[in-house]
Amino acid sequence: MNDLLVAENVTKNFGSYTALNDVSISVPRGSVFGLLGPNGAGKTTFIRIINQITMPDTGKVFLDGEALKADHIRNIGYLPEERGLYKSMKVGEQALYLAQLKGLSKAEAKKRLEMWFERLEIGDWWNKKVQELSKGMAQKIQFVVTVLHEPKLLIFDEPFSGFDPINANLIKDEILRLRDNGSTIIFSTHRMESVEEMCDHIALIHESNKILDGKLIDIKRAHKSNTFNVGLIAANEDAVIDDLSRKFNIKPATFKSINDELRYTIRLEPNEKANDLVSYLTTQGELTHFVEVVPSASDIFIQTVQNS
């Protein structure tokens, strides 16, 4: 039982519109799982099914090996994309209420809240009304409320929106810390750099279908195309370029370098070896740069969506 959450053949229709079509996803325990997809792909519907806000038409979802049931709510923490707080309620009062809805006792909730408020240095907000807070401040409260009951599964939908870079970093560190403490995290975002930084698994949903999933590293390996960025200082540049373009599939590269050199992206055929390229290049001049081009999560996203 290495997967905390397993969704099997989940389908959901709204009238004649299919929001999810036969989607199966497994979220490994202790991972940060990126749930990606263009707008309207069905990510939010999938997340709402996990939270039992909507029910799937067919298919099953298992948490920790058990079919999803009402009691599982206290094992899940969910920070929705569309989030807010009761404006006229005081921060502390409200956090206590939301924590109690997640099944914590009032005393326990208070203890944990005080710990978290101190940790995020927001202790003096307790008696403020939410309408006095800035958007970023309110987001912090929402984050605390989401993780307070220490659920096994945390779901963050665009967790960094509305945060300045400092606070975004703070929240990112908290998310990674929660993972290190044993939580499994599903993370839905359009910010590809945070996917790159944080996710170890991803699934890509497009037009209601899952079109890609797996370990991010494996996916990258599968998507690399035997392509290399090279920098070369050559005496006779024209001859070298001529020779290169005859032998390989090349195009000018844009990487930064301190040297004034020839810069090219060279794509090898699947049967050609990088070593042979290096050997060849060293005969042509001084090799200053040789890096394999690994597709970014963003490249994979765009490429896969466009090809499907």
Binding site: I73, G84, L98, V145
Partner: peptide, 17 residues
């Protein structure tokens, strides 16, 4: 309506029916 416009409702109904 207030719960809807303040966008808290999804947080609540992820905890209660």
């Amino acid at each position: 309506i207030e719960e809807k416009t303040s966008r808290i409702v999804e947080i609540i109904i992820s905890s209660v029916k």
